[in-house]
Design a protein around this nucleic acid. Structure first.
Length: 668
DNA sequence: GACTTAATAAACACGT
DNA sequence: CACGTGTTTATTAAGT
């Protein structure tokens, strides 16, 4: 049962994934004949060592970091140690696949993590990490600013006493430092934006500096630190002393504000909103509270994945400064956390909107914004200024695990998993070879944006992807190059190691009978012989009805009733979806365990889209008219199976073979 | 342990 | 000759 799923997810290509990159980076030149398999492949991890990181690599790196943390999260959850976060009581029991629970941290590789967690989950985790770490960095910044100001004041006073020229210079120097620091902050923020990790609305530049959570490059910060401390060693306590920095601060702020809003092209996320400032606000309030710290609770450090026990705040602060100092790791984690927050905001906004629509439809009016289930609450407090009404009509059942709820943790530590786990319902899927357990049909549709931007390997086989690419086009045919383009367009992952995956694509095209090459006027195009494609599936998920069942129940669906399931499935992180992408298909699709390809929903999307006259589901299975005439392709494809499945309802398929490819027409 | 499937690597053929 | 496209073979890992 779980074990099976475990092994399934764990599979992760140990060496390959990383190894590939390293391999591809080398001119395969000599290589020479098939050295013992090990040679080339085990070279993993080589790539990173290659010096500067490209943005892509950086992103990758960040993901790895986050995954690592996530891994720990999972373990924490699994072992039931989940730190008693402030709202623990209300959190639904964490549901972690046993398989995961049984793994030791070292056993879970980032890839495995990716496979264990669905993109939404990953996003969620990343976001959490980011938010928390962001606070840390912000604190550092704040501290530094304060210190600088303090210095300034000190100097000014000194200046009064000893009005000498040098002072003016010193003052100037301090101010320059201050400005420099602020500029650095801005720079880093912009860097982040460029990386797509942060989006800062154009107007944002006027936001008070302090409210701008900035991500910083460790080295810069450290340098700054050096400068600052070199001038005058400062104690942490300083900041407690209620300095009157207001004037200075505002000055500098306005200055920096003026400098902000550079014409940099940022990566607007779907919503174009920025989470950046909000967390800050929240955190600052926390900071002021003596005896408490957002990253400290229940005697332990809440830094993602840390959980170090600290007897008191003092010890914790110490720990924080030593273990979570500004270094690459912390910074990366922070970035990740930022992304987490951002996505959450986006999601919240969407969910809220949906809720309103739902209530409107049901003639319910949003009840008073009553403090509700903290999870959501937290989120909003943490950063949602934009979120609309987050209220739940009293009458409405409030599934504890709705997509929105889960994300609590901004600073709660590991409570998130539960939610994500929930949606993970398709969860155990992250697997390269889709094989059975992947109700991925909707995955691509749902996580379209995710795959597009995150350097995560899609859990589909090359064959399914190729097929999807082809089926997405009006003509159901693509040239090799177009297929390549589709890959790169749809998946960030395939923007690297081109030689490798392109070879794989070609290999798959040639190898699988389901791909038919057709000579075309302008060359050759590839089409899909649906019938053939179907034929090759059977062997797969055979015989694991139990597995499927377990997967579903084990993931938390079991306890929910159908409607809930649907609701949950649907709500599962619409975060990244493009407007057209989301729809009810996800709910049904998720239950269609055993579906390993990407097609169905995407297909749907496609047809919904502006894409030329679409084919009906039936046609779907046909190789479609190709200019030349694919002999084999044409004759036997039988839409039959398709029809049958279309109406399938959510039953767990023992006979999944059929439903597989159907263009799942939603639950219509 | 035998089989199957998929991923990856690489050699090779061909046409432009 | 370089390059893109296809085909084929081999190896390896994972799953049944």
């Amino acid at each position: 049962m779980m074990v099976e799923s475990a092994s399934e997810t764990i599979r992760s290509t140990p060496s390959a994934q990383n190894g590939v990159s390293s391999l591809s980076n080398q001119p395969d030149g000599g290589g020479s004949g098939g050295g013992p398999g090990g040679g080339g492949r085990d070279g993993a991890a080589g790539a990173e060592a290659n010096g500067e990181m490209s943005p892509v690599e950086l992103l990758h790196f960040q993901q790895q970091q986050a995954l690592q943390v996530a891994r720990q999260f999972l373990l924490q959850q699994a072992t039931g140690l989940s730190s008693p976060s402030s709202n623990e009581g209300k959190q639904p029991a964490v549901q972690v696949p046993v398989s995961v629970a049984m793994m030791s941290p070292q056993m879970i590789t980032p890839q495995q993590m990716q496979q264990i967690l669905s993109p939404p989950q990953l996003q969620a985790l990343l976001q959490q990490q980011q938010a928390i770490m962001l606070q840390q960095l912000q604190e550092y910044y704040k501290k530094q600013q304060e210190q600088l100001h303090l210095q300034l004041l000190t100097q000014q006073q000194a200046g009064k006493q000893q009005p000498k020229e040098p002072l003016g210079n010193k003052q100037l120097a301090f101010q320059q430092q201050l400005l420099q620091m602020q500029q650095l902050q801005q720079q880093h923020l912009l860097n982040l934006q460029r990386q797509g990790l942060v989006s800062l609305p154009p107007g944002q530049g006027t936001v008070p500096l302090q409210s701008l959570p900035q991500a910083v490059c460790p080295s810069d910060l450290q340098q700054l630190w050096k400068e600052v401390t070199a001038t005058q060693p400062v104690e942490d306590s300083i900041k407690q002393e209620g300095l009157d920095l207001t004037t200075n601060t505002s000055n500098s702020t306005s200055f920096s504000a003026a400098k902000v809003s550079p014409p940099i092209s940022h990566h607007p996320l779907p919503n174009g909103q920025s989470t950046m400032h909000t967390p800050r606000r929240d955190s600052s309030s926390h900071e002021e509270t003596p005896g408490s710290h957002p990253l400290y609770g229940h005697g332990e450090c809440k830094w993602p994945g840390c959980e170090t026990l600290c007897e008191d705040l003092g010890q914790f602060v110490k720990h924080l400064n030593t273990e979570h100092a500004l270094d690459d790791r912390s910074t990366a984690q922070c970035r990740v956390q930022m992304q987490v927050v951002q996505q959450l905001e986006i999601q919240l906004a969407k969910e809220s909107e949906r809720l309103q629509a739902m209530m409107a439809h049901l003639h319910m009016r949003p009840s008073e914004p009553k403090p509700f289930s903290q999870p959501l609450n937290l989120v909003s407090s943490a950063s949602l200024s934009k979120s609309t009404s987050d209220t739940f009509p009293d009458g409405l059942p409030h599934p504890p695990t709705s997509a929105t709820a889960p994300i609590t943790p901004l600073r709660q530590g590991p409570s998130v998993i539960s939610s994500s786990t929930l949606h993970n319902v398709g969860p155990i899927r992250r697997r390269n070879s889709d094989k059975f357990c992947t109700p991925i049909s909707s995955e691509l549709a749902q996580n379209h944006e995710f795959y597009k931007n995150a350097d995560v390997r899609p859990p589909f086989t090359y064959a399914s992807l190729i097929r999807q690419a082809i089926l997405e086009t009006p003509d159901r045919q693509l040239t090799l190059n177009e297929i390549y383009n589709w890959f790169t367009r749809m998946f960030a992952y395939f923007r690297r190691n081109t030689a490798t995956w392109k070879n794989a694509v070609r290999h798959n095209l040639s190898l699988h009978k389901c791909f038919v090459r057709v000579e075309n006027v302008k060359g050759a195009v590839w089409t899909v012989d649906e019938h053939e494609y179907q034929k090759r599936r059977p062997p797969k998920m055979t015989g694991s009805p139990t597995l499927v069942k377990n997967m579903i129940s084990g993931l938390g669906y079991g306890a929910l009733n159908a409607s809930y399931q649907a609701a949950l499935a649907e709500s599962s992180f619409p975060l990244l979806n493009s407007p057209t992408m989301i729809n009810t298909s996800s709910a049904s699709a998720m239950l269609h365990v055993g579906h390993d390809d990407v097609s169905s929903t995407v297909e749907q999307v496609n047809s919904n889209g502006s894409n030329s006259p679409r084919l009906s589901p039936q046609q779907y299975s046909h190789p479609v008219h190709v200019k030349e005439e694919p002999a084999e392709a044409e004759d036997d494809s039988r839409p039959v199976s398709l029809m049958a499945t279309t109406n399938q309802n959510v039953t767990i398929p023992d006979d999944r073979d059929l439903e597989e490819e159907l263009p799942v027409e939603d639950l219509s």
